[in-house]
Design a protein around this nucleic acid. Structure first.
Length: 526
RNA sequence: GAUCCGCUAGCUCAGUCGGUAGAGCAUCUGCCUUUUAAGCAGGUGGUCCUGGGUUCGAGUCCCAGGCGGAUCACCA
């Protein structure tokens, strides 16, 4: 790689300039610079600064450069913004102007000292009396006008993306604020922030395939956590009444616009609370964070107008009935397969009709239902889930708590207090996507053991995402866990919603990318 | 995993019917002391993603592969 760099003429040219700068007695990589003002501060305090004519010292990366013989303009960019610098040979000295400044270019770091003034064209600027190089860049930046557009380079070389695209910086500043506001909110409710293991001898708390690794010291296999749920509930057993954790979870599954192998979740658990309490906290949390970060509860996500001031509540089976006409609550597996058969015929009719009416549009984009593909490994819970995903989820644009899930796929949730076909669980849907998942936590140790055993049955039937029985967790529950409400919120999804980002990659600084060929340091492939 | 689209100079992009690989910016040389996509004149720069095939001749057509994006499936 290094050899290639030296070969490239643009790089070689810049390395030669470094040598020239050194020969003139300047250090192209000095140690520090005393800054008095950020670029934006100079602009904000311009009236005062130009009045007083006091010296200001700014520093940053040269983002534009216009030379006119013995005088030049450039823009310096720092974390706050940009300021234009005016540099004349007769002000900084011929040695500096010819021996140093003429060897600098866009991408280099510069310190400039001078007084505030306004140019003929009215731009607030600094008239430099002295300049110094702070870092010589040898890799050319992308073009000033069109910038860096190639998505692959933007994700792989996020530093270049951040330099060239100010919106990207703003997105990640917002991400930071969203997480900070989330912590402030939880702390305000007297939740204790805790840390639980990332490396776990058994994975649990969600339906997902894990990453497997190995601990040499104990010679045992370990898994990267897929959720913190089971550890946080152990802490409720231990007597912490309110705990939360914001951390990375890892799931060894498909990658797409909404899934990265590692992602950030917040989970929180409150003793003596149920899923209604979790709904209230979740609603208030999202509203508070949104209001504090964006200053409004009316947002636009990918063209959808969303009003976060009202969160609707609807029961899972009621939504199915509303959108399909079928009352599926009491149906068994065979009946559900028949329902799906009928729905698929309806879906095909709808799609045919849609294509006749809109010959140029894509049916899936207009959320016309797809036919559902079923297979033998699917049990009643899976079949119901399919119906929901295809027929209901695309309709859920405004914030909606979907309540009371079928019992099969919620092995950690308590049965509904007045309906034994459902569990006390909700998911929050906004803009057709899921943002939170919560239950009244199951604390009956006998029931919990049976649910785990049912999951092990699913695993035997071929469901790789079924949960595994955690004996130590059962022991904890046997000691007694008070009634508890628990909730998980996908932080990346929330950031996507509030920054109007179409892909999870746009809210992760370094999203997972396939290594380039010849670029990997090849740890042995398995 | 499936389907579709993309990959040409450091960056952003053209490239017709298969016939000598182009532009702007950047870079280099010269001029230019209030410019702002500064300007003027001249120059350098290419594994056309990779490997096969068809052809007198392939950036262009065919096959296989790589990487990315979008959509679908599964999950959050």
């Amino acid at each position: 790689m290094a050899a290639e760099h030296h070969q490239h003429p643009l790089i070689a040219e810049r390395i030669a300039k470094i040598e020239a700068i050194r020969q003139q007695g300047f250090n192209p990589y000095p140690y520090r610079y005393d800054r008095t003002h950020f670029a934006q501060e100079v602009v904000d305090q311009f009236e005062h600064l130009s009045e007083s004519q006091e010296n200001v010292r700014v520093c940053g990366r040269i983002m534009s450069l216009r030379r006119m013989g013995k005088a030049s303009f450039c823009h310096l960019e720092d974390a706050s913004g940009r300021i234009q610098i005016y540099i004349r040979r007769d002000d900084v000295g011929a040695d500096v102007y010819n021996g140093l400044f003429k060897k600098l270019e866009v991408g280099d770091f510069l310190g400039a000292e001078g007084y505030a003034f306004t140019t003929k064209t009215g731009e607030k600027s600094i008239h430099a009396g002295a300049i110094s190089v702070l870092c010589k860049s040898i890799h050319p930046l992308p073009e000033k006008w069109h910038g860096l557009k190639d998505k692959e380079i933007r994700y792989r070389q996020r530093y270049a993306d951040l330099i060239m695209n100010p919106d990207v910086r703003r997105t990640f500043e917002l991400r930071s604020r969203i997480i900070r506001e989330t912590r402030l909110f939880m702390d305000g409710l007297h939740f204790l922030e805790v840390e639980t293991p990332t490396l776990q001898p058994l994975y649990g708390g969600a339906n997902a395939r894990p990453f497997k690794t190995h601990l040499n010291a104990l010679n045992i296999p370990l898994y990267l956590r897929i959720a913190d749920e089971l550890y946080l509930k152990r802490l409720i057993v231990g007597g912490f009444d309110r705990v939360y954790e914001i951390c990375k979870d890892f799931r060894n599954e498909g990658m797409d616009r909404t899934h990265n192998p590692e992602f950030t979740m917040m989970e929180f658990y409150q003793a003596y609370a149920d899923y209604y309490d979790m709904m209230n906290i979740t609603e208030k949390l999202i509203q508070t964070v949104t209001q504090n970060v964006l200053g409004t509860l009316n947002i636009t996500y990918q063209g959808m107008e969303i009003d976060l001031s009202t969160f609707h509540r609807a029961k899972w089976f009621d939504l199915i009935q509303t959108h399909t006409g079928f009352d599926t609550k009491s149906m068994d597996e065979a009946q559900l397969r028949e329902v799906i058969h009928q729905l698929n015929e309806t879906a095909l009719e709808l799609r045919t009709q849609f294509h006749q009416e809109h010959p140029n549009d894509s049916a899936s984009q207009a959320s016309v239902p797809e036919p559902i593909v079923v297979d033998d490994t699917m049990d009643r819970g899976h079949l119901l889930e399919e119906i929901f995903d295809v027929w209901v989820e695309p309709k859920l644009v405004q914030p909606t708590f979907v309540m009371d899930f079928p019992v099969e796929n919620s092995p950690l949730a308590k049965k509904h207090r007045s309906d034994d076909k459902t569990v006390e669980r909700f998911e929050l849907y906004i803009a057709n996507a899921e943002y939170a998942n919560a239950f009244s936590e199951l604390n009956d140790p006998i029931d919990q053991r049976e649910r785990f055993e049912a999951q092990m049955g699913l695993k035997a039937r071929g469901d790789e995402e079924a949960q595994v029985l955690d004996e130590d967790f059962l022991t904890a529950i046997e000691y007694g866990m008070p009634p508890t409400g628990g909730c998980g919120i996908g932080i990346d999804r929330l950031v996507m919603l509030l920054t109007d980002a179409p892909s999870i990659r746009d809210v992760l600084l370094f999203p997972m990318m396939r290594p380039l060929k010849g670029d990997e340091n090849e740890p042995e492939a398995e």
